[in-house]
């Protein structure tokens, strides 16, 4: 009797619902976190303990402090990889944002058959799997002398332009032409129009596009592996090569540390740009 009455008070009923939902969500969340947590706490254990008892928490015997991290940094030039990944990601993302927004805006304002054809041709990039062009792109990149860390931004522009131009096109269409006409009447040139009027209006879209591109490029394995090879490894390449390289048995502790190292920057990045990532995803844009 009393219970029934209590449940009729909306506040308590709502609370009960919340509790049930939380009771499902919390274990689920822990389940989702577990694989990463597993790597995290294993990164403080000695290699033997990682392979023998991967699920055991570090204890007095197995705990090695930050030794794995020091090994990981030295192993296969990981420090250079970290730096290289940063450079390639940042410069590629900036180039993509600039070039593809200029391209998207200009083609839409230009109008006519040529621009429609060019936009159509740009879409092709979204349906072609990388395996189709990996051999020939690597070949031509070599011939053009672009097979270096400095050539990578151009490659990412080529492979990222489709999606970036496509997403930005949607936003360019949303900018009222009247704004630009008013600026033209006031004597604003094309270049100043783009950088002074259009780009500020495109900022939210540019951030969304850049965030998606950053996640793709930071994590990309195959393109840097094929173009830069093992001499100029990025982080994913360094991790893969350290597992398959001619080192004999792999240093598991070092691997754990490298995995954590590769995750930290992207998680920090996510904390700052969460809103834009979620926006990008719910618009259906897809990571690489």
């Amino acid at each position: 009797m009393e219970r029934k009455m209590l449940s009729q008070i909306p506040f308590l009923r709502k609370n009960k619902e919340q509790l049930i939902t939380l009771a499902i969500l919390i274990p689920l969340a822990l389940l989702f976190l577990f694989p990463v947590l597993l790597v995290l706490y294993n990164s403080f254990k000695g290699s033997v303990y990682i392979s023998n008892e991967p699920f055991a928490l570090p204890d007095k015997e197995s705990f090695v402090g930050v030794a794995n991290y020091l090994v990981g940094l030295k192993q296969s030039g990981f420090f250079g990889a970290l730096f290289r990944s940063f450079f390639i990601t940042v410069s590629s993302v900036l180039l993509l944002a600039l070039a593809s927004s200029m391209c998207a805006w200009f083609l839409h304002r230009m109008g006519g058959r040529v621009s429609r054809i060019l936009l159509g041709v740009l879409i092709i990039g979204m349906v072609v799997p990388f395996q189709m062009v990996m051999y020939t792109t690597t070949f031509i990149t070599g011939k053009l002398g672009l097979a270096s860390v400095y050539g990578m931004p151009l490659l990412y522009l080529a492979f990222g332009a489709s999606l970036s131009v496509f997403i930005l096109s949607g936003f360019v269409k949303g900018i009222p032409v009247a704004v630009e006409e008013a600026a033209t009447i006031d004597g604003c040139g094309v270049v100043r129009m783009f950088f002074g009027v259009v780009m500020p209006l495109l900022t939210p879209a540019l951030i969304t596009v850049s965030v998606l591109n950053a996640m793709w490029i930071w994590n990309d394995y195959l393109l840097p592996y094929l173009v830069l090879g093992s001499d100029n490894r990025t982080i994913p390449v360094a991790i893969q090569l350290s597992m398959t390289g001619a080192y004999g048995s792999t240093n598991l502790g070092g691997l754990m540390a490298m995995l954590i190292f590769s995750m930290i920057p992207i998680v920090i990045f996510y904390l700052f740009s969460q809103k834009y990532i979620i926006d990008g995803v719910s618009q259906g844009a897809v990571k690489g």
Binding site: F32, Y221, I239
Partner: peptide, 9 residues
Amino acid sequence: MPNLIGGIV
């Protein structure tokens, strides 16, 4: 979160 992490990792 798993989507932030690269396929190799």
